[in-house]
Simulated assay, not measured.
Amino acid sequence: MSGTDFAEFERSGWARRSGTYDDGFGAMTARLHERLLDAAGVTRGTRVLEVGCGTGRLGAAALARGAVVTATDAVQQMVEVAAEALPGARVLRAELPGLPFGVGEFDAVVGAFVINHVPDPAAAVAELCEAVRPGGRVVLSCWDTLAGNRAQGVFFDAVRAVGVTPPADLPGSSPFARYAAPADFAALLEEAGLREVQVEPVGWTHRVDPARWWQDVLGGTVLTSSLIEGQDAPTVEKIRAAYDDLVGTYRDGDEVALPVAALLALGTRVVAGEDAVEHVTNQEPR
């Protein structure tokens, strides 16, 4: 699948889920928002760009800190939802890469679980690096391995247990998949020109009714839900039965306690001339 086709797959998928994402899957991802803002150094008066704003939860948290927020999303339906949720922010539709901002326009750039949805991660991070001022930070998150991120892993394990064939028009993986490990994620940021790069594993527990979580993932993801909903009805029933068995191992009373695992990456844009100074400092003596 080409980058253009992948971008269209993502846009159309999220457009259909703009009304079902926030209360379920979106609420789970929001557990990382305060840590993202802390890592970016967001306080009162900070000029923040949020990319992939979705329904506006992260932007709302930044506004609550007194930040000056600009929020973007590639999906018009999400932009409309976010605009209602963020009356004090500038909200606009914009692709990543392809943002309409000047060099160094922001003090910080944040993106919660968006880098794994873009067609060209390297170009996207390079653009985010350019949008932040010298000394400002770019902070991004992505999902960790399915072995650790059981909140999503149980779905893929259920599909595998049934032995289904993915729909022919489904992307095999995200273009970001090659970077979805700490060292590779760090290299992606460094190659874009960011310095003082750190990639930290983070985790939490998502407690939820298992039947509700099945609906939340189908209504709040694109690739995972398309993999399941692209099957015929009897196969979906088999996947659901396998999911019920797998998720049952995490039962805690009436709910399940599912481990969630992610990677939090941050980097700082260097001050003009710093790269050259660093290069000279690190040269071997002659």
Rank of each mutant, 00 (worst) to 15 (best):
G13V: 12
E255M: 05
R57E: 14
P119R: 14
I228W: 01
L266R: 15
V164N: 10
R35H: 14
A233V: 00
D23C: 08
V109F: 05
T46F: 04
Q231G: 04
A108F: 04
F25I: 02
A7Y: 02
A112Y: 01
A83K: 14
A192I: 13
D5E: 04
E200I: 05
G26V: 03
P259A: 13
V79P: 11
D73T: 00
N149T: 03
L258S: 14
E191R: 15
R178P: 07
E130I: 06
V125K: 02
A39T: 05
S2N: 15
A257R: 13
V208M: 01
F9A: 09
A147T: 15
A83V: 08
P285V: 03
L223D: 03
G54R: 02
A183T: 06
G104E: 01
A89T: 12
L266E: 14
H117I: 05
A126V: 07
P234L: 10
P175Y: 11
G56V: 03
R286N: 00
E80M: 08
M28R: 04
A186F: 00
V75L: 09
E127F: 07
A108K: 02
G273Y: 07
L264C: 00
D209H: 04
V68N: 10
I239L: 06
L99V: 14
H33E: 07
Q152Y: 09
Q215H: 05
